[in-house]
Design a protein around this nucleic acid. Structure first.
Lengths: 330, 330
DNA sequence: TTGTAGGCGTTATCAG
DNA sequence: CTGATAACGCCTACAA
């Protein structure tokens, strides 16, 4: 592998001068610069990152901890990786068991992440229980899609649901229910409910909370189907806003089973806008997560934290806006 | 950060002895070993990988190049990462544009991957056009899901389709068609067709090739729906094996549009067994990709290539078996 | 069984 | 503007 030394020998200049050219720090004569550049490209010089890391005592690695596989989160990672790469950082992956929120896999994964001494650690919301350990380590970290009050990039789910209610009302629906996962008061529901309540109040409607079978709450699709089967046709709502696209698709399946027509008899709105949402029958009206914006914002904050920039009041945190995607279930 | 030196000072031993304990190479007295271990854990010693990499002149990074986001591929990466981690390697990510097979993004991404001098490079099949450059670099590489003859871990798609035909026949179907993407002779179809033809011949049936609208071939779901709409009800097949789950779900949607009942009037079998396959209406019978086995096998080969083990005759390559998952569309 | 010393490729200090 | 030279933390001949 060709290093500084080789370029130095080739140009007849000193290592120091070649280094100055490469880092762009320090004054170098026109002539030397041209010579070094030519030689470096001709020889195919590639800086040794290990040596640089050692010397500078800093890593260029941002470790992302994944729990399970989620297309939406990967989309966020996609934009984040791209942005971080442009700033010279690498993204490395640490994959925990699927549904690891409650897994004992997580402490070990966090230990591993710390051992690697990355420049920063990114964690998907839902597994933040152990975050204190990371905070203590001093390594910059960032949560994505968290519901807790650590440094994080979030989505304004409440606003998404608010918009959905307002939209459904504008199309003539008057009995608009919210179908959540498990207990109404759990974190996931709580991040959506304020928007629902607010919109319902503003429109002087009555709130209705549909709750899935808590035993089944691990499977969103089944939960949605379950809710669809439970609904009383006589006094049923004329619109349902679901906790997620998966749940909404379960509702669709349940209504299909019962030959209830969507959207004629009842409208269904999902949440997330997963790729699958456009392929359901009928294609799902849903609230789109701003994946690109989240990824970019995450990269921005990570870079600032690495650079040691002081956190704004209340810490690094933001809630990015969603957009409503109207398809054929409403 | 606490290093070898700190532990040495703390124990009163030399750096060399501490190092011997840490690497496990070389004889150390019981007493020294115990002392070092105690001190190391108490002080929280963490080896500096940059220094080690520099000294040993080797990286512990396996770079995975992703083009777009695919749940199935991520599942493979999940198992691969886990296995590689157990051998002390990290997985880092390089994300190319979605659908980058034909994108000019790829050469730049490959350059970037090479610049990082990873211990190995893993690429998803479909973007192997530039693989020669990697092969020349001498960095161990591995393709996954490739259809070309580089070192790769593959899936025996042909066998999957063969099994599907045999199964459909066993349930009484006699007019079993294959619905592919674009031109029948393209690579993706060619990896499946031999199994179809073989089974059809063995059963003394007649082959029937349904071809999607090539213009639409980029969108599998739409392509499937298109095929479903084209089918002549009079002389239609009584079973269709689709190129992919997405296409199969498009078929389902198309038959739903035309009020053709699945599986009563026609059976549909997908390929991949994506998570979505179990959530379609009706749930899809499909050919499951062996994601775990692929990930594990990939890690195994990568490790061997890194270790410099000689390739078996014909290079590192294998085709892992699929399994048929029977649900409700057949 | 243990220790000394040199070097991996970079960056950065300090003299020229 | 340029060039010796000393680290960075780890590994490993070679000595003791």
């Amino acid at each position: 592998m060709v290093g500084l030394k080789d370029v130095a020998r080739d140009t007849g200049l000193s290592i120091r001068t070649v280094s100055r050219v490469m880092t762009g720090k320090g004054a170098v004569s026109e002539r030397a610069l041209a010579k070094v550049m030519e030689s470096a490209t001709r020889l195919g010089y590639r800086p040794n990152r290990a040596a640089r890391s050692l010397k500078l005592n800093q890593s260029y690695e941002v470790t992302v901890i994944l729990s399970g596989i989620d297309e939406l989160f990967m989309e966020k990672v996609y934009f984040m990786e791209k942005a971080l790469r442009e700033s010279g950082y690498w993204v490395s992956l640490l994959m925990a068991e699927s549904g690891a929120e409650s897994s004992n896999d997580i402490p070990a994964i966090i230990e591993e992440a710390l051992d690697r001494r990355p420049a920063a650690i990114v964690i998907r919301g839902g597994i933040e229980r152990e975050i204190a350990k990371i905070e203590d380590s001093g390594i910059p970290y960032l949560l994505i899609d968290s519901m807790y009050s650590y440094d994080s990039v979030n989505i304004n789910r409440s606003q998404g649901v608010y918009d959905a209610v307002k939209y459904l009302h504008s199309t003539g629906r008057r009995k608009i229910a919210y179908a959540g996962m498990g207990e109404p008061e759990n974190q996931a529901n709580m991040s959506r409910l304020p928007g629902y309540i607010k919109a319902i109040n503003e429109l002087r409607l009555f709130p209705e909370m549909l709750s899935g079978n808590t035993v089944l709450s691990a499977e969103q699709f089944e939960n949605g189907r379950y809710v669809a089967h439970q609904i009383d046709l006589e006094r049923s709502p004329d619109a349902i806003i679901a906790y997620s696209d998966f749940m909404a698709m379960g509702l669709l399946a349940g209504f299909y089973d019962r030959k209830i027509r969507v959207p004629d008899q009842i409208a269904v709105v999902g949440f997330d806008d997963r790729p699958a949402a456009s392929r359901s029958a009928p294609p799902l009206t849903t609230v789109r997560q701003p994946n690109k914006e989240v990824g970019l914002k995450a990269a921005e904050i990570i870079l600032k934290k690495i650079a040691g920039e002081a956190a704004p009041e209340g810490g690094w945190t933001c809630a990015l806006p969603t957009t409503l995607v109207v398809r054929e279930t409403s």
